[in-house]
Amino acid sequence: MTHLEKLEATSVHILREAYREFKSLVMLWSIGKDSTAMLWLTRKAFFGHVPFPLVHIDTAFKIPEMIAYRDKLAREWRLNMIVGQNTQAIAEKRTFPDGKLSRLECCKVLKSEALKHTLSGDWTRFRFDHKLGKYVEDTNKEPYTGVIVGARADEEGSRSKERYFSPRDRDSEWDIGDQPPELWGQYKTDFAPGTHVRVHPLLDWTELDIWEYIGKENIPVVPLYFNRGDGKRYRSLGCWPCTAPVESTAGNVQEVIEELKTGKLANIAERSGREQDKEDSGGLETLRRGGYM
């Protein structure tokens, strides 16, 4: 087996394990390349089907092309698409840069908070109605207790210590000091009532692996990842006020791979365009402990 085939097989095994063990399971789809590759792996695992809902947290600051692309795939692949949002904070402009929030605080309000309440079901969820072709309020208010997330170990320090199956307590807190053992393809799949689990099928993948897999499988990704004539492309996608494109002429998957392997990006951190990481040296870890993905 090739390196990519091995990564694929491990991820598929994890996805099947999650589907077998957790009744109330969802996958977070950020519309970025990682979680889109993960969605593709789901179709691999379940032979073309996606047997659980996909959740997207819409901060209202996402680049519009991301939303258009999300709904296009949702229609084509007949996805069970759920969207959550912190509508109140957005209405009250408790955001960066309008409100007095720092970038990190804004992430907490628009992403962590929205996610927590969307998963628990106490905020309104919007479900894509394939017949009506639009989002309608979801009648299902049941909490989702298993959440599949596309975090990768190479992204930054704290993620390198995650487990494939990582428990979170009632308040979504992560106890890094006391994580379950994982060995021989056996993961923590037993949970006390009230706790929930994050599943990380992409933990062993690197940024380059993801792009090579996207190329190999011909997975559709948002065109924002490619240079479209202005010498710029996004390397990592987020909210527009906090995400800057990088200088790059890579216009397709192969060129992105070449750039990552040998070009000027080979030694620069992927999230370098994400401004919130720069506010605090342990920024992402601080967020992750509070439930950020």
Binding site: P181, L183, W184, Q186, K188
Partner: peptide, 13 residues
């Protein structure tokens, strides 16, 4: 090879 779960946790292997 195997693991043993005790009270929701993998406690033995």
């Amino acid at each position: 090879r195997f693991v043993i779960v005790d009270n929701y946790e993998i406690a033995g292997a």
